[in-house]
């Protein structure tokens, strides 16, 4: 058996850069957006005043929204180009296996299965997060543009679209924020499997042990062996997990 500490390349430099850009735009957009949604809260007002007023906040929010739009378009462009040129497998698409894996994991949590679901390059939780944020990102871009340019929009669409866009923008932002704050932060920081930080998106590498535990089907493909052979008789032990936590 190969050494569990062996590092396996998981993310390219482009993906690492993309993640940094998303961190930057998310932090700025959430800070300047949530203070507008919760304007009546004292801390929100403190932040707005520290930013030099609501006009500055809106300006920063809108231009960071433009940057976010660029990121999303770049991401989708690269993804479509990559998949279309058959260089990449469409590993992020949701399949029937994801549904099976999610049910399997719930059963595993309740002790009805003796091992966690065995996933490929991206597990169903990562896919859920990715798609909610990608689709949410599109909704935010479209509704944000409507709110930025209401005069232009109402030349072709009814006026009601403006308050509708506001409700959508505000709620979708909250939804994405909650997914990030609860789910993503837990999975990449507080989860016992990765605590204190899952560094793979920053370094680009992941340990073979974590690959074995979280993405065994991908590991088997990388190493050119059958998953059953790779996994042996049983699933990766919990003891292994604890020993390996935090290596990313």
């Amino acid at each position: 058996m190969k050494d569990g500490k062996t590092k396996i390349r998981r993310f390219s430099t482009f993906r690492i850069a993309e993640h940094w850009m998303i961190i930057l735009s998310s932090v700025v957009l959430f800070a300047t957006g949530l203070c507008q949604r919760f304007w009546h809260v004292d801390s929100a007002q403190w932040f707005i005043l520290k930013m030099g007023g609501i006009d500055n906040v809106r300006l920063v929010h809108r231009y960071m929204g433009l940057f976010f739009t660029f990121e999303i378009l770049l991401h989708v462009g690269v993804a479509v180009g990559g998949v279309a040129s058959r260089k990449w497998e469409s590993s992020m698409f949701i399949t029937r296996e994801d549904l099976v894996a999610s049910i399997h994991n719930i059963r595993y949590y309740f002790g009805l299965e003796n091992h966690a679901a065995r996933c490929d390059r991206y597990d169903y939780m990562e896919k859920f997060e990715y798609w909610t944020i990608l689709i949410g990102g599109f909704l935010m871009i479209v509704s944000g543009a409507v709110l930025w340019l209401p005069t232009m929009v109402t030349r072709i669409l009814p006026g009601e679209i403006i308050p509708a866009a506001k409700v959508l923008h505000s709620n979708e932002a909250l939804l994405i924020f909650l997914i990030n704050a609860i789910w993503h932060i837990y999975n990449s920081i507080f989860s016992p499997d990765v605590f204190p930080l899952d560094t793979s998106i920053f370094t680009g590498y992941i340990s073979r042990d974590r690959m074995m535990r979280e993405h065994p089907l991908e590991l088997a493909r990388i190493e050119g062996v059958e998953p059953n052979v790779l996994l042996g008789d049983g699933p990766p032990g919990v003891e292994e997990k604890a020993a390996d936590s935090g290596t990313g």
Partner: peptide, 22 residues
């Protein structure tokens, strides 16, 4: 959204709780 946000939030918290419990 009023329906979906709380359901999703609770669902994610439940997942986290079950994961830690397991």
């Amino acid at each position: 959204y009023k329906i979906f946000i709380p359901i999703m939030g609770l669902g994610l918290l439940l997942q986290i709780f079950l994961h830690i419990w397991r």
